[in-house]
Design a binder for these strands. Structure first.
Length: 822
RNA sequence: GCGAAAGUGGCGGAAUGGCAGACGCGCUGGUCUUAGGAACCAGUGGCUCCGGCUUUGGGGGUUCGAAUCCCCCCUUUCGCACCA
């Protein structure tokens, strides 16, 4: 009867997802159900606490939205919808991360200009995203390639420049010969380009860097305060790579004032340093190499430079190297030791030089073996002594031997003692070293925001005045990069030649663009202020909405995007632009969706096209199915057959709600209802969606046992419980059962009474010696002795007690009695 | 090599010290029926003399009791990788 009253469209009694979904999508758009006006954003619009629900914005590829995107967004959307049903004022934006090499390469390959390609892709993505029923505020969206956005990316660069955080320096950089551009260290995986897989070369170029390494300690310390997935936190920790040790000074024999500084985590082994190794690129090499050795050294350096990083970073190959002829003085022993160069020492870590302790370091040992260098034992592990043979490496801690006055000291203690003693003689100091390097942001490509810097013959480096932003990326026909290391924009004099803003003379624009990761390192600040022409982020709005409450995304961005975002936020805080230094209060990494156990990829041909499934079963079923596959934070295996489970479930739920009748609820059903609400509430808070769905299914099975007609009171709460998963259906059921407006505005997450989740009687497990022998119903709260008597009176239990002595009774209230016999 | 996570029916998975296999797929049988990609009912790890026995990668241990905690081994996935 109720259904006839609200049946405005021709939605029939049977569940037709396509009709229901079309109807509600249109209504959400018309009524702006999910959007905030800018005014509402400024005043914190609706009622309730502001809750910023963020998900990693997609790169709008030409292939369109894939299952992985939908999986990620659905989990995040459910989170947002749940918070909204709890009464929070949820802001859930989406945008597009559309600059970068990926788009540019695609454009080059297909002969379409990115300025044509990207808007088309964004349009397609938007269309697809709308079909899935996300709660996006389409009035606050972001496109990193729009001048309205990158104007502020450039503004950011200028702030960093003025603060001395952005610096141009001549430095060895990772050059990708495939992409024809430099890469950040984070983009180099085992010596290869993470994008195209080419072996990365080292080139020395003048590039813009952000001094993220100055923030290493803070980035590390703050991790402890964040509510983040452990996996993500650990990846950042490893990437920052803090190690404690000492920097020690080894004077060069016969060269006054010349010395080699090394970083070591094992100053306790300095007495065992029998030679030194410098990276082939080390600036000292040229000066200290003796004349006799110069030819050999130069040849070796040539060979190393012409090889690539992939090759160089193979760890199990035969060690190579060459003696420079120079001799250094071991500051601990006073002995002269040879100085070699070898490619296993990397210029980019520590000081680019090491003291080699072959007795206690595997790599040094391998090198010493190859070149017949002396090995000396200075640490004795358990069972070793000073005279133990040095046929193998011992890299653990222990007691010092062959170390003069330090003999007998434990290595932990010796580390600080030796460092202190050397420091007193000016030959060392305690030192913390980080793996994290400065972030190279220059890219010799076309598809990115031009770096807003000018070079004037008279004034030198001049920042573009802020009121002249944006420096617009021009449309150029030939944007193909080349191997020269010079950007495509550098081929366009009409663009780069300009007037110096300070002297009026001729100036040349910086022709490199910035790294895409800079675009995405601050987009979350822009969303609430999207459309603001006066500032990148309105101070008032930002104070109301940030930091982000929950951020959900993939772990593939654990070090790149998340680290850069944290860094950018810290700098902005230090510069007084924002009031917080950590952008994402809570971060959860979602899992990966695979197909038949393998990652989905075009080359494997196992990519799932979501459109077909949405067409056939509807977005609600598709969403529910994806979340039911497995734990959201672990991912799952996409199996087409499985979708009928959630489809049937939603059908049954629909029927149950619409066929319910008004009569008192059965006490057993009521108990199950309260238990189900409790379970769903707990699970949604933890993003444990698969078990929440299972709990609802289980409950619906109880409600409909034997095809019984359900009580209204029993099924009405299900409409709200399912709403985060199947929002269209929930709206329709809400409206058909007399609800006003949108369930997300007027519905409330149901509450439960803990007392009602349990019955007066409970089923006890009765064990004999830990083995199940009976299940007996007893009164809730029964005492141990009563329960024991009940258990002992059971015939089957008694059978197992014959002829043995009862030794002990283990009692778990309302749960279990275990009779221990012997 | 280092670090981390995981290993449970035919399959996806549930249970994190107390009934292993919830929920779903698939499968078997049945009811109804406009014979169906519907709904409902019963069953579904293995063995069984129908009392039970056995079972969570393998082996050992702790415990009254272990998928869960500890040790060793195997396998898989992910991250880092000559980081001094």
């Amino acid at each position: 009867m109720i259904r006839d009253m609200t049946d405005e469209t021709h939605v029939t009694d049977s569940y037709f997802p396509a009709e229901v979904e079309r109807k509600w999508r249109a209504r959400w758009d018309e009524e702006g159900t999910n959007s905030f006006t800018d005014d509402a954003i400024a005043r914190i619009g609706r009622e309730g606490r502001p809750f910023y629900n963020l998900m990693m914005f997609p790169y709008p590829s030409a292939e369109g939205l894939h299952v992985g995107n939908i999986y990620a967004f659905t989990g995040a959307d459910i989170h947002g919808r749940y918070r909204r049903l709890l009464g929070d004022n949820v802001f859930e934006p989406i945008g597009f991360d559309a600059f970068g090499i990926h788009s540019e390469n695609f454009a080059l390959k297909h002969g379409v200009h990115p300025m044509e390609l990207i808007p088309r892709n964004i349009e397609n993505f938007t269309r697809q995203l709308r079909r899935v029923g996300f709660m996006y505020d389409w009035s606050h969206t972001v496109d990193t390639t729009s001048p309205e956005y990158y104007r502020w990316t450039q503004w950011l660069f200028l702030q960093f420049y003025k603060a001395g955080v952005a610096v141009k320096k001549e430095a060895p950089v990772n050059w990708c010969p495939g992409c024809n551009t430099v890469l950040a260290n984070e983009q180099v995986i085992a010596g290869a380009c993470e994008r195209c897989g080419s072996a990365v070369e080292m080139r020395t170029l003048s590039q813009w860097f952000f001094r993220i390494s100055d923030y290493a300690q803070r980035l590390l310390d703050n991790l402890k305060t964040l509510d983040w997935s452990d996996t993500t936190r650990r990846m950042q920790e490893n990437w920052i790579g803090r190690s404690e040790g000492a920097e020690l000074v080894f004077p060069i024999a016969g060269m006054d004032g010349e010395s080699v500084r090394v970083f070591t985590t094992r100053p306790d082994t300095v007495f065992g340093a029998t030679y030194m190794v410098l990276a082939p690129e080390h600036p000292l090499v040229d000066r200290i190499t003796t004349d006799q050795r110069r030819t050999a050294v130069n040849e070796y350096i040539q060979a190393v430079v012409s090889s690539d990083l992939v090759n160089r970073k193979i760890t199990d190959k035969q060690k190579t190297g060459v003696d420079t002829g120079a001799r250094a003085i071991n500051p601990a022993t006073g002995q002269e030791i040879p100085v070699w160069i070898a490619d296993y020492v990397l210029m980019e870590y520590g000081t680019g030089a090491i003291m080699a302790v072959p007795g206690h370091d595997e790599r040094d040992f391998a090198f010493a073996q190859a070149f017949d260098l002396p090995v000396r034992r200075v640490i004795a592990g358990s069972g070793d002594s000073a005279d133990s043979p040095v046929g193998e490496v011992y890299s653990g801690g222990g007691t010092l031997v062959n170390s003069g006055e330090y003999d007998g000291m434990e290595s932990g203690e010796a580390k600080s003692a030796i460092t202190a003693a050397l420091a007193q003689r000016g030959l060392g100091e305690a030192r913390v070293n980080f793996r994290l390097h400065d972030w190279c942001v220059s890219r010799q490509r076309y598809w990115g925001p031009p770096i807003p810097i000018l070079y004037c013959d008279a004034c030198g480096t001049v920042p573009v005045p802020e009121d002249q932003l944006p420096v617009t990326l021009p449309f150029i026909e030939n944007y193909k990069p080349d191997a020269s290391g010079i950007s495509p924009l550098a081929r366009h004099e009409e663009w780069y030649l300009t007037e110096c803003p300070s002297c009026g003379g001729r100036a040349r624009r910086e022709t490199d663009v910035s790294d895409t990761f800079l675009d995405s390192a601050w987009y979350f600040l822009r969303y609430p202020s999207a459309g603001n022409h006066l500032a990148p982020f309105d101070p008032e709005v930002t104070r109301n909405w940030l930091p982000v409450n929950t951020y959900i995304g993939g772990n593939e961005h654990a070090v790149l995007h998340l680290l850069y975002s944290r860094f950018v936020t810290m700098v902005l805080k230090d510069l007084g632009h924002i009031h917080f230094e950590e952008p994402f209060t809570r971060f959860r990494a979602h899992g990966l969706i695979v197909k038949d156990g393998a990652k989905m990829s075009k080359s494997r041909g196992n990519v799932i096209v979501p459109d077909d499934f949405i067409e056939e079963y509807g977005a609600d079923t598709f969403r529910t199915y994806l979340m039911f596959l497995g734990p959201y934070q672990e991912g799952g295996d996409f199996r087409e057959a499985g979708i009928t489970g959630p489809y049937n479930f939603l059908n049954r739920l629909w029927d149950a709600v619409l066929s319910a009748e008004d009569r008192p609820i059965d006490p057993a059903v009521e108990r199950k209802l309260h238990a189900t609400i409790a379970k769903c509430s707990e699970d949604l808070g933890e993003l444990s969606y698969n078990t929440a769905i299972a709990a609802m299914m289980e409950y619906l099975n109880v409600v409909r046992t034997g095809g019984r007609t359900p009580e209204r009171e029993a099924v009405q709460p299900l409409v709200t419980l399912i709403a985060p998963f199947a929002p269209h259906m929930a709206e329709e059921l809400w409206s058909r059962t007399g609800g006003e407006g949108s369930i997300f505005d007027n519905g409330r997450w149901p509450t439960f009474d803990p007392a009602k989740t349990v019955a007066d009687e409970v089923e006890f497990v009765v064990q004999v010696n830990g083995k199940l022998r009976a299940r007996l119903v007893m009164r809730r709260g029964i005492t141990e002795s009563e329960a024991r008597d009940v258990a002992l009176s059971d015939a089957n239990v008694r059978r197992f007690l014959e002829g043995v002595e009862l030794r002990k009774v283990v009692f778990v209230p309302d749960r279990l009695v275990n009779l221990v016999v012997g």
